[in-house]
């Protein structure tokens, strides 16, 4: 099964709506609630990253008998130094975004903690691709 969701850059009022749709689907499929919780944390953080940093993005969710695989690909500024971006507390978010309580440099570490596999690749001035896998065991 495959589902795709569009993520609009800059539109915080819709941030979380794609993750919310995925959560509904996983619940309908009777996926274990602990796995749903972890996946939802990862997806929400990834979605907010696109909203906060990119122009637009797509979340593609594939559900297999043994795993959930999600790709979040965006068109945006990209990440020059992924290792740095992965550090807890590091953020390039704007002051406005920080005032809302985002941009604390916890997003990518949260994703890492809440996914079984995480791969991130990025091209500066092109965009970022994030892949998350959670196993259904």
């Amino acid at each position: 099964m495959e589902f795709a969701f569009f993520i609009e850059g800059g539109n915080f009022s819709k941030a979380g709506s794609a993750s919310s749709e995925v959560k509904k689907i996983l619940k309908q499929l009777n996926v274990d609630s602990k796995i749903i919780k972890r996946t939802v944390v990862s997806l929400y953080e990834a979605e907010v990253n696109v909203v906060a940093h990119a122009f637009e993005g797509d979340m593609i969710v594939e559900i297999f008998p043994d795993k959930i695989a999600v790709r979040i690909e965006d068109k945006g500024p990209g990440i020059p130094d992924i290792e740095k971006a992965m550090e807890k507390g590091f953020s390039t978010a704007t002051p406005k975004v920080r005032e809302m309580g985002f941009g604390a440099g916890m997003g990518l570490p949260n994703i890492k903690k809440n996914s079984d596999e995480m791969n991130i690749s990025s091209k500066v001035n092109v965009g970022t691709k994030l892949e998350i896998v959670n196993y259904l065991k």
Partner: peptide, 21 residues
């Protein structure tokens, strides 16, 4: 889940968090 969240944030995103969690 089922926790009460105490905050000073008042914008719509707090509901996204409350719902997802």
């Amino acid at each position: 889940e089922n926790q009460v969240w105490i905050t000073l944030q008042t914008h719509k995103n707090i509901m996204a968090i409350a719902s997802l969690k």
